[in-house]
Design a protein around this nucleic acid. Sequence first.
DNA 1: CCCCTTCTTGAACAAATGTCCAAGATAACT
DNA 2: AGTTATCTTGGACATTTGTTCAAGAAGGGG
Lengths: 194, 194
Amino acid sequence: MDTKTAASGEQVDRQSRILDAVLELLSHHGISGVNMRAVAREAGVALGLVNYYYADKPSLIRAALNRTGESDLRLVTPDPDALPDEQLLQALRQVAGPEFLNTQYLSLRLHLWALAQAHEDFALINAEAFEQYLDGLATLIGNAKPGLSRDDCRERAADIVVVQNGMWLTSLLGIGDASIQRSIARTEQIAFAD
Amino acid sequence: MDTKTAASGEQVDRQSRILDAVLELLSHHGISGVNMRAVAREAGVALGLVNYYYADKPSLIRAALNRTGESDLRLVTPDPDALPDEQLLQALRQVAGPEFLNTQYLSLRLHLWALAQAHEDFALINAEAFEQYLDGLATLIGNAKPGLSRDDCRERAADIVVVQNGMWLTSLLGIGDASIQRSIARTEQIAFAD
DNA sequence: CCCCTTCTTGAACAAATGTCCAAGATAACT
DNA sequence: AGTTATCTTGGACATTTGTTCAAGAAGGGG
């Protein structure tokens, strides 16, 4: 299950490249653009190989979905060297950083959400990732403001996520950068309020 | 082009039923669930009729998309009898009303946004609808707070839309009603701030 | 060298999908 | 009634798509 010999070095293993291809196609052309042949072409492998690693299309999509969830969690798990206040501030500001606030990533998010709406099993993966993110954010708030109860932290985290999701979504619709900055300030205000 | 005789009364004309079917399928099964045969079945008409009214699939989707844009505009065009303050408040609170904050509608929105991301011409329709909504909201704010400049109104409208979109999106992810209420209060705060 | 497991390929097939079309039904008007 | 335009049907066709499969390549250990 994990016996790959790291290949020839510069070439990532093909199983991983297939998932990359799915995400690339999904963010650019939506779910209708994700078919086994296009995935194979994009990944530079033969059609049969996709079905070799992933039994069927739903499994393929699921695997790709799980992968994005992991990368999202990095947002709320910052470096442990920083002070609690810094950690929280960093997490809140990073969502507007180039790593997350770019069309490719946002578009991907949107398609994943849409997918989750249409298929029960995708919804479960999505809900779990969301719950983990909310939990991580609540913990960061708790660390930065020790006086708050666990429920208060979760409440603030929920309010922040509303604004953050709004930022992500609305920035896709072409809203100005100024509004993004004001919204970030709003999340900080919610997080650090007395 | 408009010579229908209102049919037999209780049965809506078939062209309209076809669009209804598209939206129904889109919100429940995503774009992959929208195919000509499913649309025909859902609308209770023959396959050929769909292509009779809409030349091809993109035209069909476009027509359905345009229809939702019109219904969104109603949010920011309230009854003219109310006072400006009431109009604005009503618009801000209606987005959490049962007419808009239900899974069917939200899911539809999400799929439409995702579609807009994947296809240029859908993006244009979406952007135009968004612009009109933003404009309507800015006008409501201007009426309620005559002291504000046109740009200030648009700025506030943009900030409000961020939170509203966040509410819509996050409520799909299953966030609690309490957070929705707090978010609405936040939009009112933005709108009526001095 | 051979054997065995793992990986990789592309052809082949069945099902699904978009589009077209010939024919029939309905309605409107003279 | 007769005529014409509009609406409605479902079959047919070409293409696309998911999945399967037999065959081969690559590599590792004896």
